[in-house]
Design a protein around this nucleic acid. Structure first.
Lengths: 136, 136
DNA sequence: ATAATTGCAAATGCTTTGCTTGTGA
DNA sequence: TCACAAGCAAAGCATTTGCAATTAT
């Protein structure tokens, strides 16, 4: 059974090795935002011989192919997630590290407007909210 | 003549050494967002014996005292600026690296609202726009 | 066949730290 | 005086890379 990411690799002409298939499968199944260490652990459950160097190389390759997205949240190592159709930003729980995704079109529009007012074409952006859970 | 940052140190009870005075002066005079290497170079023009370790330690100290702000823009080393009264965000020119500061109250409000809707109290945030200059 | 990929260990780049000597309040 | 700070070099940490062996197409 080929994973979602595996199919994207085929489409983009990314050569599929056994290691890449395993990493693709793990990332396709992950609904969180694992860092390389965590990915390596999960990958090693399926094939314990895959090195962390290969995970680093593969994750970078996938990122350059637009298949996965890399995030450098505050004070942490890089974390990855499969690219989705929709654009979303992240809210990070400062106590637990838990990540919630959100979409807000109004903010998107304002960002574009701000950039244009300053004489720039908006190419990319980064919006992260850091908060603590409100107990009710 | 004591610098702006030097005064803040006095107010916060941060011990003032010769090295810290020099670093404070340099940062007070800087209107850009220098990284530690750049700060070290500027500082060494006034006192060539100040080590980069001291710059690292001092910049961290100032940050913890709320005197300077640290930014980790995409793909770069940490950069610093003196904290100002107003809160502002940054637009980074993807071609030149040039940084423009901006303030947008509407975006701020929306961020707070988004966090609350998700059950969080907004504690901190990060908003960076990346763009390329529009030629006219 | 053969250019690309892997695993390993060593190298990297930024940042922090241990230790000894120096110094501000 | 004496707890704290500075300078130096070594250590840390995440990530990248050189090289010889292996593999996908």
């Amino acid at each position: 059974m080929s994973s979602d990411i595996e199919n994207k690799c085929l489409k983009k002409g990314v050569r599929l090795t056994d290691q890449r298939k395993v990493i693709a499968k793990i990332m396709s199944e992950s609904n969180d935002h694992p860092d390389v260490d965590e990915l390596h652990k999960r990958v090693n459950n399926l094939d314990s011989k895959i090195s962390i160097a290969t995970v680093y190389r593969t994750v970078k390759l996938f990122e350059e192919a637009g298949i996965v997205a890399k995030h450098d949240f505050k004070g942490n190592k890089a974390r990855y997630e499969q690219t989705t159709l929709d654009h979303h930003d992240h809210l990070i729980d400062i106590n637990t590290g838990e990540i919630t995704e959100f979409v807000n079109e109004d903010i998107e529009k304002l960002q574009k407007k701000v950039a244009e007012k300053l004489g720039y074409k908006l190419v990319d952006h980064r919006l992260e909210l850091y908060g603590s859970k409100i107990k009710k």
